[in-house]
């Protein structure tokens, strides 16, 4: 299945309220195309855990491997992109969740794919997205008590960390 077909399949199952759109390449203008490889299915933030579970368990999809979980800063929104892969069928898909910058909370998919646990911790550390329902959101990469989220575009390093001057 192509990512577009997977999107339609999800749309059939969950409806337009949950699967809100498909972000795909637009190559109509050869001078300045926009590329999305693979195309991303937009999912409502609150439903991502259910959609993920469906993606994993549905016989037609069987997206059993979470390849990558990326957190992105798009200005007004932060988004989480889940790149999925099916070892059984050999197809790929991408889910995307956009959340407002000020209330960046996404349900955790740790129960769906175990590997998401550390990816979510990393995203929480560096991008400041809280994953509700995550079993252990302690800092993974940054030191305990570090302020701010370094991968956000408006990040500024704190001046002192436990008495140590930060920007050398």
């Amino acid at each position: 299945m192509t990512p577009e077909e997977i999107h339609d399949h999800l749309l059939d199952r969950f409806g337009g309220d949950v699967v809100t759109g498909l972000v795909q390449s637009d190559e109509s203008d050869p001078k300045s195309p926009v590329i999305y490889d693979p195309a991303q299915s937009m999912i409502g933030a609150s439903a991502i855990a259910d959609v993920a579970m469906f993606c994993r368990d549905d016989d037609a999809l069987r997206l059993d491997a979470l390849m990558c979980l990326s957190a992105l800063d798009r200005g007004a929104h932060l988004s989480v992109v889940y790149n999925l892969h099916s070892m059984a069928h050999g197809h790929v898909a991408a889910l995307r969740v956009d959340v407002p910058r000020t209330a960046a909370v996404v349900p955790s998919v740790e129960r769906v794919w175990t590997t998401a646990s550390w990816h979510e911790r990393e995203a929480h550390d560096l991008m400041g997205i809280a994953f509700s329902g995550h079993s252990d959101l302690r800092p993974l990469i940054l030191p305990e008590g570090w302020e701010g989220y370094p991968l956000r575009k408006d990040y500024e390093a704190q001046e002192y960390y436990r008495g140590m001057k930060v920007p050398f």
Partner: peptide, 25 residues
């Protein structure tokens, strides 16, 4: 590169190394 987002992976000695690049053009 054109604007957009791309995910690609290759086989390194340790497994799948994926790069997710978000380009704004």
């Amino acid at each position: 590169p054109p604007a957009g987002e791309i995910y690609m992976r290759t086989e390194t000695p340790r497994g799948d190394l994926g790069y997710y690049i978000h380009s704004d053009g």
